[in-house]
Design a protein around this nucleic acid. Structure first.
Length: 265
DNA sequence: TTCCATGTTCCGCA
DNA sequence: TTGCGGAACATGGA
């Protein structure tokens, strides 16, 4: 489930298990997933070098190569991507699109079942973020209520669409947007200009808390509290927070779950 | 077989 | 011109 918390978990995994190991072999099986690069350039940037730094912005993960030019491998996970570091004796998962074999036997596997993800090579994360016009990352230490207010300024669309717009805020997807709105008691179809200052502040605090907690739970839904919507995404079940019922709506072509009682329009 | 899916992008409309 | 919302995209699993 690669939204911000999932990608942050991948980043920490790479930071812990994939840095400072020489890449001895790289295999790319990712036709259609390479962005602004080629298999040859990727191999050139990685082979014989070590990964030496990790960075995440929104749903994008960057791994810096220790090659002289210091380019960054960029991974986006689409809807089904994942990143694992396997030991020598561990079986390889299916749908591996990029595999880096390290000296010593461990290997980094980027898998993506539906191939909606992207593999790229960039000179610097900052320039990529600028070119893509990505909004700020809500998990960043310097992102506070003031910055959040600025993101919503002048917006007129629904709060759900706005939060999921990566040019407004980078990292929230369908699931965590629903979760934040559920906990903040805001209906997803509420428009941004309908929210008062208190609601915006509450929403900010909820987003902050949900993201931090989700990362603590390593983005594993089964470990999250039963009072979270993520544990209750099913049409017709009882709301875990009030006497209401959870309903499934379709918003912008996406499944949306709301409580009919504490998220009124 | 049919339906559904956490991602982005594109097009028509206001 | 800009922003918004819905449709489309490709693929595989339940």
């Amino acid at each position: 489930m690669p939204e911000l918390p999932d990608v942050e978990v991948f980043r920490r995994r790479a930071e812990r298990l994939a840095l400072d190991r020489t890449v001895e072999h790289a295999s790319v099986r990712a036709d259609g997933m390479l962005e602004d690069t080629s298999e040859r350039s990727l191999c050139e940037a990685l082979l014989g070098h070590q990964l030496c730094e990790t960075f995440r912005h929104g749903k994008h993960l960057f791994l810096r190569s220790g090659e002289p030019r210091g380019r960054w491998l960029r991974l986006h996970f689409g809807m089904t991507g994942s990143l694992d570091v396997l030991e020598e004796d561990e079986a390889e998962p299916e749908h591996v699109r990029l595999r880096l074999d390290f000296r010593g036997g461990s290997r980094l596997c980027y898998t993506c079942v539906r191939k909606f993800g992207e593999i790229g090579l960039v000179d610097a994360p900052a320039s990529f973020i600028r070119e893509q016009q990505l909004g700020p990352d809500p998990f960043a230490a310097d992102f506070g209520l003031r910055e959040f207010r600025r993101c919503l300024e002048g917006r007129s669309g629904t709060i759900k669409g706005t939060l999921m717009n990566q040019e407004v805020l980078a990292g929230l997807g369908n699931l965590y947007t629903d979760e934040a709105l559920f906990q903040a008691r805001i209906h997803p179809q509420t428009t941004v200009d309908e929210l008062d200052a208190d609601e915006v502040a509450e929403l900010w605090h909820v987003i902050d808390r949900v993201l931090a907690k989700a990362v603590d739970y390593e983005a594993e839904v089964d470990r999250m509290p039963k009072t979270w919507l993520l544990r209750n995404r099913e049409d017709g079940v009882d709301c875990p927070r009030c006497d209401g019922t959870i309903h499934r709506l379709e918003l912008g072509g996406r499944a949306t779950y709301v409580c009919d009682r504490h998220q009124r329009r």
